[in-house]
Design a protein around this nucleic acid. Sequence first.
RNA 1: GGGCGCAUAGCUCAGCUGGUUUAGAGCACCUGCCUUACAAGCAGGGGGUCGGCGGUUCGAAUCCGUCUGCGCCCACCA
Length: 878
Amino acid sequence: MEQKSKYNPSEVEQKWYAYWLKNKCFHSEPDNREPYTIVIPPPNVTGILHMGHVLNNTLNDVLIRKARMEGKNACWVPGTDHASIATENKVVAKLAAQGIRKEDLTREEFLKHAWAWKEEHGGIILEQLRKLGASCDWDRTRFTMEPELSKAVIATFCHFYRKGWIYRGVRMVNWDPVALTAISDDEVIHRDTRSHFYHLKYYISDGKGNPTDQYLVIATTRPETIMADAAICVNPADERYHCLRGKKVLIPLINREIPVIEDDYVEMDFGTGCLKVTPAHDAHDYEIGLRHNLPVLDIIDDRGRLNADAQILVGEDRFDARKKIAKMLEDAGNLLKVEEYTSPVGYSERTDAVIEPKLSAQWFLKMDDLAARALEAVESGRIHFIPDKYRNVYRHWMENVRDWCISRQLWWGQRIPAWYLPDGGVVVAETAEEALAQAQQQNPSLKAEDLHQDEDVLDTWFSSWLWPISVFDPEQPGHPEHKAGADLSYYYPTSDLVTGPDIIFFWVARMIMAGDEFMHDVPFRNVYFTGIVRDKLGRKMSKTLGNSPNPLDLIEKYGADAVRIGMLLCSSAGNDILYDEAQVEQGRNFCGKIWNAWRLVSGWNVDEKAEQGEVSRAAVKWFDNLLSRSIGTVADHYAKFRISDALMTIYKLFWDDFCSWYLELVKPGYGAAIDRATFDATVDFFSKLLKLIHPVMPFITEELWQGMEERRDGESIMFERTPVAGPVDEPYLSAFDDLRALVVNVRGVRAQKGLSPKEELALNIEGAFREELLPVLMRAANLSSVEFAAPEGPAVSFIVGTVKASVKLEGLVDAGEERKKLEADLEHQRRFLAGVRAKLSNEKFVSGAPAAVVEGERKKEADALARIAALEASLSKL
RNA sequence: GGGCGCAUAGCUCAGCUGGUUUAGAGCACCUGCCUUACAAGCAGGGGGUCGGCGGUUCGAAUCCGUCUGCGCCCACCA
């Protein structure tokens, strides 16, 4: 076939992706083959493709394509996540830009806007994945908020509620005053933050609400919360403050009287040893308050502003209030000093707002039992983490996990299926009808309108933890005794999961829990953790830094295969990826190399009558063996999830071995034809190489494979079998390596002496050389003759292994220079020999080391002696 | 504060159970080549006291201790 001189990725990619789709090449149905399943880590439905997605999905696609070529029934299920907080934030922002405020809308109106947004932006990212070559089974595309999957989430809630593991309670939660919702502990990011440590005087009361002239000092970072103080607390062992027992103090500015109490929680040597206890605005203080029966006074509203109960600074934002109250305290003489202070502060993962500890009624899921089982699944080795170090991280979290706050004060998500009764009771059911029926059992006179459904929705992860189950059978979650559907029982457990370590707790751990609860089995066998994609300076990719390339632009510029290679080249499991466009260029160059290699081979004319020459015969034998060995190496790398090592093995095999050595050896002279045997072998090699490359570079391999011969419609390289390794003649390969070393040395001599590669040289070899490789040596090194004897006359010598070789060079040998070189080499060999002999003369080594190692050292000694003799002989000739 | 991990060539990383002659790769770099597949290429080349110190061992990049410097996870000492 006529091949264009340059590879045009975008044209080829469009053509073959359309072809794969048209022929449903990615679609999978259960059959009698072994399944290989991956569920995509569902990207946010309104998200757009970034470099992290490229890395993750490239790895997934490599795995799925490899499995497919191993004859497995490969199924990669795509889909998106409704991402409740992120999406709701986006919709709120978009509405705000149009002058619409969320609080002016009803829930139904808001959800209409949200769904409209989802319809408009949802799935863009899945379209983008196609550009990358992702071989997802698009017929199976799922969305976590589609009706069936939402039903699964609700059923799950009811299941755990019936089990008594879901409960509603007033707890101190992490309140996000921007998103206006509680969030789970995992969504809080602690960062050391510079602030101030305010030392405040609290005057001791005379018992009638009037200050005495005595005071104590507390240190706080949050002076704006003093109005909510319920007590001052000291350590009972702190003798400094025993005089305060039974006393009361007055809160500055508002002069409210509060008691002094004692609790072990207070550290004597931290701050002043006096702690102001503010139960409504600090989790520890809340605990103290419970122990001492203190009142809870909440003075901060949902948006982080002081409310009327604060008495002063009402309506002020908490940070403005902090500045203002500091001034007020100073004016009132209560501010003793202000220190610079750095302490960890919790921020919302989504909005970056400073978290406000807030007492509120939320739904929780009991975690202890689920966590214990999920820990066992990993500790027992039923699930394997790559790299292994994440087991430690996982164990630590599992052993310290707290109950999961699953309610969110949002609208975008699955609404909690709890209905409140007029008498304050609650019923939980999968539907409103069932809830009413349940309620009527308690009180037959109740009507539908008497029931009020909980306003909150469920945490997004409360739906994504079902993903590996619900994509195959949404009936299963919530109904562990349900008979799994055909797809679920065939595809579950999935095989491998590729994801980032940042969601090991959010998602990975919880999928393991849900898997155990509803399937009594693990959700996947292996979890491959990628790193974070950074720029080449090691900085995180971010919009503000502008250091994040648009993957689609890269694909447009370099081609999808090149982008995939660029990502894979620098990715080892668990390590951050330092992305550099140079790597994508390298990928593009590799495409060019493959393309041009086929241009060469496909342009050859075959002479049916020609005999196969000795050089070609030897080259074919060599590459056949090398290919076999490399197939084994690649398989081993893949088995250990060393994807970039597998790629590098293939890369070097194709470029260095196949192109630079094999093709150069067999390629016919200008205008000459090639013999049939060599041509067929070469095409066979090429075809095997393409199959080996296909999982990492699907497009160019399909293009060339399709062009190699007539293919039937629907036939694709992706259904070909991975080449299988034959027996490997190791001695032959190693003899060929020696030959290559000789050739490189001869070329080196040419380069040094400024001789043209076209100029034939005469070589002398002293030592053993494999006879059948002689023609190869002569061709590759462009030799006129090879003589197995010491050279007569001036020559440049070098040593390969234990073979000494000399290039005869009349008039070009500088005896002095040559002597210097040989002497340096000799010196080096003598030192080496001395080292080896020191070992061998050490009685402890000879008796202590394994026989094979001692034998190895003896061989080294003999080889060194041989080399020294050869070098000395050359020197004496000079 | 607790835990985990990392440190090998200019850069990114391999180096698996301690022993493969002088510790490897890719990229970058230097030199020479527009050789009829490919200059996005070809041929050749230079470059590392394996973070410091101490220990175990016949033998350490590899095992142990310690120090230094990074990274990550967990953690509400106000």
